[in-house]
Design a protein around this nucleic acid. Sequence first.
DNA 1: AACACTATCAACCGCTCATCA
DNA 2: GTGATGAGCGGTTGATAGTGT
Length: 260
Amino acid sequence: MGRSPCCEKAHTNKGAWTKEEDQHLIDYIRLHGEGSWRSLPKAAGLLRCGKSCRLRWMNYLRPDLKRGNFTQEEDDLIIKLHSLLGNKWSLIAARLPGRTDNEIKNYWNTHIKRKLISRGINPQTHRPLNETTASVKSTAEWDFENSPAAENDFLGKNQKQKRESDSFNCIDFGSMKAVEELNNTSSGITTEEEEPPLLERDSSFHCAEIEPNLELSIGLLPFHSGSARTNIGLVRSPATVAQTAACRSRQFDFQRWGSV
DNA sequence: AACACTATCAACCGCTCATCA
DNA sequence: GTGATGAGCGGTTGATAGTGT
């Protein structure tokens, strides 16, 4: 059987959106609000997949979007958040008003990653590139500086592996010190020397049984208008809480964070 | 001017998660 | 408890603009 396709591919447009399509979508959402993406295209008279409509709206048409270059503050904040959260672009985007996860992801891949590598920092682990530890060994073995192709190859595979064993689903946000720190972050870090490796990812990293305390979450800033799913721990079904309780968590090196 | 190469980013795809019947 | 469905996320792709030769 398998799941049904998200849309009737034979009768949907693909590729770049036209101004007319944009206007149709904007008009419809102004009138009816966001949501029901699957039925939206038909209702709005668009020959588009619902997912495509949602993406177009979220990443491009939303009125609260900030266009233009990233500031140094945003740069620093992204690096800081990535060191804490990993490739959780939606969570990172929730901290950057007017920025979308897609935009941040692109910016990371095209600018920041390169910048970190040039500084000798592994963009995945936020550790020095030449540093080798038990679990980052496979990553540290790559010589990114001299082998961009290898870098791409590694990053692709690693992302897949990371997804499969996604330990971030089980993050223990029990120590709110980092979260508070995050909330208090106004301008991010100022120099590269100040950027500590915040998240231990190697085997020496100690795991603790998570306590599914729903109050322990990354508190979203008031400006955030994203989905409920971007609230770590806030929106949890009973089943998910049970799953979470059963999984092992990783803890951040908050001492180092706090010492910044 | 023409071509090759690189960088950028919008959009797509496949997957997971949440919800509901 | 289970399966179906919708929504959302993260990785990847492809078109195109920019730059170098």
